[in-house]
Design a protein around this nucleic acid. Structure first.
Length: 801
DNA sequence: AGCACGCCGACT
DNA sequence: GTCGGCGTGCTC
């Protein structure tokens, strides 16, 4: 080893997915020239090949052998400088693998492990003799031919591509078909009775489009579908999965008629001034629900586009932010693209290329859109900045999208607007301390007033029996709205039907054999399911412990309330919106569509109904129980409860008709509930910030959570303790001040057949801690712990389950 | 993290 | 006898 002369070699760090410390030193043969930052290369890694990212030049430090890269994959880098810098910052700050952070910026088709494909094009005239036999115009270059090219000379492939003899199509043959399905709509409904008179099926005409499956449910058969299509009773069309959910977003066409009010106009000009000065500046836009934040965003974006710059808009889950999309589409039409999980790989690729080419000037999407490779970024907007979906907790990188957006704005030296009706305690604190500029929208435009809120004490006014979730007052108010054909949203913070199955005799509740949590009972299918690992079993007729056949169905979920509503309200069937009914974009959109088109006047749901819905027909919001989140062992539970109540209350009275909100609670005297009812953010904040300060929680500190897991509990316990002692010493040696809590069993202390402990650090110097962790792990594999112990590091965790 | 290799238990 | 399940170790 020592005899090798390294001086003429061109060493470079390549990021490879895998271990947390994912930079490896490779030799870049000189024939590949100078690689660009973020350019992908194929490298030998152990006994396999992997895709790596060129990071920059480096020198060997240890005595390991250094391999050469096999070849570059891309001819250029997909990463703009600012994006590359942000990805590496994320890797460092969140203790994540750099390759994983870079991969987050690529569309699925480029994440593939498969090599790019090459196609013959043009003429074979310039090919070396031994390769001419492989030439087939328009056809894929065979692996054998590639092998031959590789052997022939190192940069032959590159030359052939440059000379357009070969075209590189990265991963093209891996692109799946566009997902389409046949859908049917009914024609000539007036003829149906006659048409089906002498036939074996007698379906009713229907509105809109149904899939074949849905027709079969309605009594159709394959045969009759086919003949009805022939007889022009049904019409078939193919549905391509929608790029943007058109059915809930009709682009606003009335936008030029909407005038900004004084507040809004002032705000636009103030932020725009900062844009013109072109400097990093975070704004916190605190605007009451329905105050027209979106229209302010649009006017800002318009001014940024006028300067030939682009805009990045982050939102919580995209399907629930139809209103935001509708505004942007109305304003900017084809300059807007959306990035979301419902898109096919093809659509994502199109969007990715369009963004890079400058075809799209505005990108809207959830936290993954943070990585959009927009050139010439002029403004970032983070809507509903308090939303917990901005934090990715699994898999790594475990980043906070809002915080990273601030970093991206800083890197680009541009302003960023964080908007919310209930700002996170962290952001509001920064605004009060002057680090962010606080701007406010205090009124709803066009006469719409804030809803009136009443607190209802459930201790004295609950209905008897199993319907403990409706007070007489709420019941009466719902009846009044139903009579007037107005709409109602009911919010319940729990899902499922009677989540637990409890034996009436011995009180046993069946638990999950893997996770030591109680199983949830789902009446549809009489199944018991573990919500953490997915373990499912059928419920027994007899109690496993004592053999009794009587069970109590414990607790109340949306499904149980759903069933009780027709009984309470003259057969009115509610629409239910929770993660059971709204799996997949399509079903979710359908539920929202059904509600906005008045198929039902009651929408019942969990957290999902609290997010940015803009339903003008809603005049009453009922919070069935405000209490459930308050008992969670989490320092953010007050903040979450407050924000959920305020947000759901904000769904009421968004148009001309006044809105009302009823909050049912067993703690009517609780400050948090009172502040939420008064929609008094400032009082909530003042109280909350005191307790954060007293307990040294964010924003006064930042948290670093270490989660250890292992099948061996003894070893886990001793190794976690060992880790604590070591990090304590390292922290004091490096003069980093931090408070250490634990190790303690996690809230879910047994999950997926592993025991779990966590160790919590509170510190003001997270970056220093991250570097300490990195150095420690580089010199000591797995921090010197047994290799059976898995260590997960979560910086700025959102919850500590 | 993800893969390969190796050790052991079940089954043809 | 061999197939494949999971536990362990390593990657420039």
């Amino acid at each position: 080893m020592t005899s090798i002369n390294h001086s003429k070699k061109n060493f470079a760090f390549i990021a490879v997915s895998g271990p947390r410390q994912g930079l490896f030193l490779y030799d870049i043969p000189s024939e590949y020239g100078k690689l660009k930052r973020g350019q992908r290369v194929l490298v030998p890694f152990g006994k396999i090949k992997k895709i790596g990212y060129y990071i920059g030049p480096g020198q060997p430090t240890g005595s390991y052998k250094i391999k050469s890269i096999i070849r570059p994959i891309d001819l250029d880098s997909y990463f703009t400088d600012d994006l590359f810098t942000m990805c590496l910052w994320i890797a460092e700050y969140y203790c994540a693998n750099p390759a994983d952070c870079l991969t987050a910026a690529l569309p699925p088709l480029l994440k593939s492990k498969i090599k790019p494909n090459y196609f013959w094009s043009g003429s074979e005239a310039t090919l070396p003799d031994n390769l001419t036999k492989f030439f087939k115009n328009g056809k894929k270059v065979s692996p054998a031919a590639l092998n031959e090219i590789d052997k022939h000379e190192k940069d032959l492939l590159k030359n052939l591509i440059n000379n357009k003899v070969i075209i590189e199509k990265p991963f093209e043959d891996n692109i799946p078909e566009r997902p389409t399905s046949k859908i049917y709509n009914g024609l000539n409904p007036e003829m149906w009775e006659e048409y089906f008179r002498n036939k074996n099926i007698h379906p009713l005409p229907f509105d809109g489009y149904l899939k074949k499956k849905e027709l079969l449910v309605r009594g159709w058969t394959d045969y009759y579908i086919k003949s009805a299509v022939n007889d022009k009773i049904l019409c078939v069309s193919a549905e391509i999965r929608s790029f943007i959910p058109d059915d809930i977003i009709t682009p606003r066409v009335d936008l030029d008629q909407i005038e900004l009010n004084d507040e809004q106009a002032l705000l636009v000009s103030e932020i725009f001034k900062s844009i013109q000065e072109s400097g990093f500046r975070p704004f916190l836009l605190h605007g009451v629900t329905g105050s027209g934040k979106t229209i302010v965003y649009c006017h800002l974006a318009e001014k940024v586009l006028d300067q030939n710059k682009s805009v990045l808009v982050l939102t919580p889950e995209i399907a629930l932010t139809g209103a935001t999309l509708a505004y942007f589409k109305g304003f900017f039409d084809k300059a807007v693209t959306v990035v979301h999980s419902g898109m096919s790989d093809n659509e994502r690729m199109e969007s990715f290329n369009g963004i890079r080419d400058g075809k799209y000037k505005i990108v809207i999407g959830p936290r993954s859109a943070l990585f959009a490779s927009l050139p010439n970024l002029g403004l970032i907007i983070v809507d509903e900045e308090h939303d917990s979906s901005y934090k990715q907790s699994d898999p790594s990188p475990r980043f906070q999208g809002r915080d990273c957006a601030i970093m991206r704005a800083k890197i680009n030296n541009i302003p960023i607007v964080l908007g919310s009706a209930t700002p996170s305690v962290e952001s509001y604190y920064q605004a009060l301390s002057g680090k962010y500029k606080l701007v406010q929208l205090t009124k709803r435009p066009a006469g719409a007033a804030l809803p009136t809120v009443r607190i209802i004490d459930m201790k004295s006014s609950g209905l008897k029996g199993d319907l403990t979730y409706f007070s007489y007052t709420l019941k009466k108010e719902i009846e009044i709205r139903l009579k007037k054909d107005e709409q109602i949203i009911l919010f319940l913070n729990r899902r499922g039907y009677s989540p637990q199955l409890k034996c009436a005799k011995c009180g046993d509740v069946p638990g999950c054999p893997n996770c030591q949590v109680k199983l949830n009972y789902h009446r549809s299918g009489r199944k018991l399911t573990c919500h953490y690992c997915g373990y499912t079993t059928f419920s027994r007729d007899l109690c496993e412990k004592c053999g009794s056949k009587d069970f109590l169905y414990h607790g109340t979920g949306t499904q149980k309330v759903e069933e009780s509503i027709p009984r309470l309200f003259n057969g009115t069937k509610p629409l239910r919106l929770d993660s059971d009914t709204a799996t997949g974009n399509f079903r979710l959109r359908k539920i929202l569509h059904n509600f906005s088109s008045g198929k039902s006047n009651i929408l019942l749901g969990t957290q999902m109904v609290t997010k940015g819905l803009d339903m003008p027909g809603v005049t009453l919001v009922g919070v069935l129980s405000a209490d459930m989140l308050l008992d969670m062992p989490d320092f953010r539970s007050s903040e979450r409860t407050f924000s959920q109540i305020l947000q759901v209350a904000g769904r009421s009275g968004r148009a001309e008709k006044p809105g009302e909100v009823l909050i049912q609670t067993y703690y009517p005297e609780n400050d948090l509930i009172i502040n939420a009812a008064n929609q008094d953010y400032k009082s909530f904040f003042d109280k909350e910030i005191e307790s954060r300060k007293a307990l040294f929680y964010p924003p006064f500190s930042r948290l670093v959570n270490f989660i250890f897991s292992s099948a061996n509990e003894k070893k886990l316990e001793s190794d976690a303790l060992n880790f604590r002692n070591q990090i304590q010493q390292k922290l004091s040696e490096t003069n980093i001040s931090a408070t250490i809590l634990g190790p303690a069993p996690c809230a879910l202390y047994y999950l997926r057949n592993k025991f779990r402990r966590n160790l919590l650090l509170k510190t003001r110097q997270v970056m220093k801690v991250s570097r300490l962790i990195k150095d420690w792990e580089l010199e000591n594999k797995n921090f010197g712990l047994s290799s059976t112990i898995k260590v997960v590091i979560d910086i700025d965790p959102d919850d500590m389950m």
